[in-house]
């Protein structure tokens, strides 16, 4: 334990490891041999090994804790943001539904055509176009979209998109 404290503290007294590192070698013994014949050699080696592993784990454990904390915080913030967004979206949707309900019902009825001849023509066209006979037409509605394109702009679009 004393050795351990010695290693960790930067005391004025030179620590065991400093002593080991201060050997310079001589004619008889190399630096390594001098170090190994020091009585504290194996203790120091053991402590360097153990503290090394522990310090690496300690630092990475601190990082884990920090980023786990950050992750949970961010998740919580994300969730509350999402909730707000969802609430806003729900409010909007409700408004839209209300508007739709308020809209005149007559129009909806008018949209649905019930012309047998027309349906036959349309289903023939689809069958010819898709080469597929396994379909049923459930309803046909008149397109009540925005103003249709003028002949000129339609021609322009055809011209520009033809190769595709």
């Amino acid at each position: 334990m004393n050795l351990f404290l010695n290693l960790m503290s930067e005391s004025a007294e030179p620590s065991v490891i400093d002593r080991l590192l201060s050997y310079t070698g001589d004619a008889e013994k190399s630096v390594a041999q001098q170090q190994i014949s020091d009585p504290d050699y194996w203790g120091s080696v053991g402590i360097i090994t153990v503290t090394g592993i522990l310090v690496v784990f300690l630092i990475l454990a601190i990082l884990i804790f920090f980023f786990w904390l950050m992750g949970t915080l961010f998740k919580a913030v994300d969730k509350s943001k999402k909730k707000k967004q969802e609430a806003a979206a729900a409010a909007k949707a409700q408004e839209a539904v209300q508007k739709a309900v308020e809209a005149p019902v007559v129009e909806e009825a008018a949209e649905v055509e019930d012309d047998g001849e027309l349906i036959a023509v349309i289903s023939a066209a689809i069958a010819a176009y898709t080469d597929d006979e396994g379909f049923t037409i459930k309803s046909v509605r008149k397109h009540e979209g925005k103003r249709a394109r003028s002949a000129w702009s339609a021609a322009g679009i055809t011209e520009n998109t033809r190769p595709f």
């Binding site: 390594a32 190994i36 050699y41 194996w42 080696v45 053991g46 360097i48 090994t49 153990v50 090394g52 592993i53 690496v56 784990f57 990475l60 454990a61 990082l63 884990i64 980023f67 786990w68 950050m70 992750g71």
Partner: peptide, 30 residues
């Protein structure tokens, strides 16, 4: 790594090779 901070532990464990080898190099002196 940010998505799964536990990965740090594995990154630390694999450094065990470093300290084992430090011990091994010293033992080789024997």
């Amino acid at each position: 790594l940010i998505a799964n901070p536990k990965s740090f532990l594995l990154g630390a464990a694999a450094q065990g090779g470093i300290f084992f080898t430090f011990l091994g190099a010293c033992l080789l002196n024997l």
